[in-house]
Write a protein that binds this DNA or RNA. Structure first.
Lengths: 154, 154
DNA sequence: GTAGATAGTTAGGCTTCCTAATATGTTGAA
DNA sequence: TTCAACATATTAGGAAGCCTAACTATCTAC
């Protein structure tokens, strides 16, 4: 008879959580951008290369959706990566859609990706190394829900 | 005699953790920026107002350090907030340093801050509301170490 | 075929952030 | 006291990243 209680637990103050999460994320992303600039390759670039490596032939829209970014923005990033010689636009697959571009890594791009990953002694990893094991566990555990926050809605 | 082992636990793959954290943070900050633009007040603005409210008389450098941002960047933000009529530069305190500016909220600024906080039914809180209680707990627990990542070194 | 959806690009603009240089004020040591 | 070194803040100029609107080319369905 009684309606289900809104939440079994005291419902965790969402606003407070948001107010803690927001500044941390903003500061962290500032740092990431700054560090990336020193290195010359942005975190996004590395990620895009990785994504293309994993699913070669992906299109601009696919990547834009995955990264939750506008198509023009993604297009510009890819243009830059192509100009760097790190990826190419594949001729359309047989029976293919002539509108689509099939993005694939060049050997140079694959090499660049490896180099980036190898030099992942970067700022973030260094900062992580300063945390205790239990802190790292907590962080790792919190990562899944964090990921869900930015999940693509199906 | 034996040297202390590098880590009692298998040392949590820092690189893997970083590779998970980075994209989540980047995506989230993109979302935050996009949403903030719709509303017209950036998350940083709100935060600055809050910081000034808590410690009136703070200087540009203080805030820049807290937010871990260059002084010119902070200066520009504050200029914008001042132009909006949300804060003023106090005349120097008695016996004060004439270089420093003492930042204080105007009544209008305090009001704006309240309005912003009240309308914290924003995107992030909404997204958080979609998580389960246990996910929220995990997220909340992970927040402390996340904060430590961007902590100011003393 | 032709209307509408889809893939991608171009054009133009905004925000946020940075470094380098400058103006002004403070302090300490010769 | 006077001047060099330092600190605070701003101005100037520029780069990165993102967006919307508008356009081209292609595809699908009627």
């Amino acid at each position: 008879m009684e309606p289900p209680p809104p939440a079994p637990q005291p419902p965790v103050d969402l606003a407070a959580l948001a107010d803690q999460l927001r500044p941390a994320v903003l500061k962290l992303s500032r740092h990431l951008r700054r560090e990336a600039q020193k290195v010359g390759v942005s975190a996004l670039d590395a990620q895009l290369l990785g994504m293309i490596k994993l699913s070669p032939g992906a299109g601009v829209s696919d990547l834009a959706d995955l990264e939750q970014m506008s198509r023009p923005s993604m297009s510009a990033h890819l243009k830059r990566l192509e100009a760097a010689g790190w990826l190419t636009r594949q001729a359309n697959a047989p029976g293919g859609d002539k509108r689509r571009v099939g993005l694939v890594l060049t050997p140079k791009g694959a090499q660049a990706l490896l180099a980036i990953k190898r030099s992942r002694n970067d700022w973030l990893a260094a900062r992580l190394a300063a945390l205790s094991a239990s802190e790292l566990c907590a962080l790792a555990a919190g990562l899944a829900p964090l990921g869900r926050l930015v999940e693509v809605k199906s």
